[in-house]
C-alpha cells in the first residue's frame, strides 16, 4: 500500500516533538475526521531553524508531516510558504490515490504555523494574506460513487 520511503518516514519520523516557546504553531485537521497535525516552528532572521510536529492520524499523515518538516527546515519563510502538497507527495515518491489528501494536511499545517508566526509578529507573508486552513481535507467519497445507486 505505501512505498518504502513513506514507510520509512512513518516508522522513523523525523522531527517529532514540540518546541517550547515556538515562534509559530499551527494545528490543522480535526478529531472528527481522525487527523490532527500540529507544527511548531523556531524562526530566526526569517529562516526556519527548527521544526517539530505531532500528528494524530493515518500512516500517510505521519509520513507527510515528517517529510514536510525536513523540507522546510533551514528554508526561509518565503521558501517554506511555497511548499505544496504535490511537492510533499513527490518527495515521498508517491502516495495511494485515496491518501493524497493527507499531504494537503501537511501543507496546511506548515502554512498555519507560518501564519501564526506572521500574526504574532504583525507581518504579512506573501501567499498567506488571507489564510484559512481547510477543515476537512477528506473526500469522503471515492471516484466511483457517482455511478453507484
Amino acid at each position: 500500500m505505501y512505498n518504502e520511503k513513506v514507510m520509512d518516514h512513518f516508522m522513523n519520523p523525523r522531527n517529532v516533538g514540540e518546541i517550547e516557546n515556538a515562534d509559530g504553531v499551527g494545528q490543522v485537521g480535526n478529531v472528527k475526521c481522525g487527523d490532527i497535525m500540529k507544527m511548531y516552528l523556531k524562526i530566526e532572521d526569517g529562516v526556519i531553524v527548527d521544526v517539530k510536529f505531532k500528528t494524530f492520524g493515518c500512516g500517510s499523515a505521519i509520513a507527510t508531516s515528517s517529510i514536510a518538516t525536513e523540507m522546510i527546515k533551514g528554508k526561509t519563510v518565503e521558501e517554506a510558504v511555497k511548499l505544496t502538497n504535490k511537492a510533499v507527495v513527490e518527495a515521498l515518491e508517491g502516495l495511494p490515490a485515496q491518501k493524497v489528501h493527507c499531504s494537503v494536511l501537511a501543507e496546511q499545517a506548515v502554512k498555519a504555523a507560518l501564519y501564526d508566526y506572521a500574526q504574532k509578529n504583525n507581518i504579512t507573508i506573501k501567499g498567506l494574506e488571507d489564510f484559512k486552513p481547510v477543515e476537512d481535507v477528506h473526500e469522503h467519497h471515492d471516484e466511483d460513487d457517482e455511478d453507484e445507486e
Partner: peptide, 14 residues
C-alpha cells in the same frame, strides 16, 4: 485513545 487506527495497524504490520 489519542491514536488513530491505520497507523496502529501499519505499525503492527511492521
Amino acid at each position: 485513545e489519542f491514536i488513530e487506527g491505520e497507523s496502529l495497524l501499519l505499525s503492527l504490520d511492521m
